[in-house]
């Protein structure tokens, strides 16, 4: 079980990451590692469970371009919160590949980075176990103004200044 922050609410959700090993049965949300996508093609055909693509911070997003449209959920892993590659991946998904589905932060997901994740196009977050739900919700609105354009709002402040 994990706590999922989505649409300003936190609720419990079960999820599972599929890697190189074959798994008989799954429950909850299934996230298939991009590196091992081929192995799980069959499961992707079944529609009884929500299935998402799981990207690691060092995955070369460009290699999976063709597959992206098959998913409504893409999870981006933060192995350590200091690993900032996930921010670029999310922005590329939104801005370059026009991904309209849910982009979810998984791994070392902490309250104090959620605002930046949101700016880069993330729309849901599996909070690390010790993070407080109410702090996380509050963090989504840390700043009311931003200088740069980004995936949440492409217009930089300089296009809005009176």
């Amino acid at each position: 079980m994990a706590r999922l922050l989505k649409n300003n609410e936190v609720f419990q959700e079960e999820y599972q990451v599929l890697g190189s090993e074959d798994v008989e049965s799954t429950s909850g949300t299934v996230l298939v590692q991009a590196k091992h996508l081929d192995q799980h093609l069959q499961r992707l055909q079944q529609h009884d469970q929500p299935i998402g693509l799981f990207l690691d911070s060092d995955d070369e997003l460009e290699a999976y371009e063709e597959q992206l449209s098959n998913f409504e959920l893409i999870a981006i892993n933060f192995p350590k919160f200091m690993d900032g590659r996930g921010y670029s991946l999310s922005k590329l998904l939104r801005d370059r590949y026009q991904f309209k589905g849910d982009i979810r932060a998984v791994g070392d997901v902490l309250v104090d980075q959620i605002f930046m994740m949101k700016r880069c196009g993330f729309s849901s977050y599996y909070l690390r176990d010790d993070q407080k739900a109410e702090d996380a919700i509050k963090a989504l609105d840390t700043f009311t103004l931003r200088y740069q354009g980004s995936s949440d709002d492409p217009e930089p402040l300089y296009r809005k200044r009176a």
């Binding site: 670029s88 922005k91 605002f115 930046m116 700043f143 200088y147 930089p156």
Partner: peptide, 14 residues
């Protein structure tokens, strides 16, 4: 300065 201030993509560079 304004562009780099809280640039969301580049707060955790290598």
């Amino acid at each position: 300065r304004q562009w780099s201030t809280f640039h969301p993509e580049f707060a955790f560079l290598p």
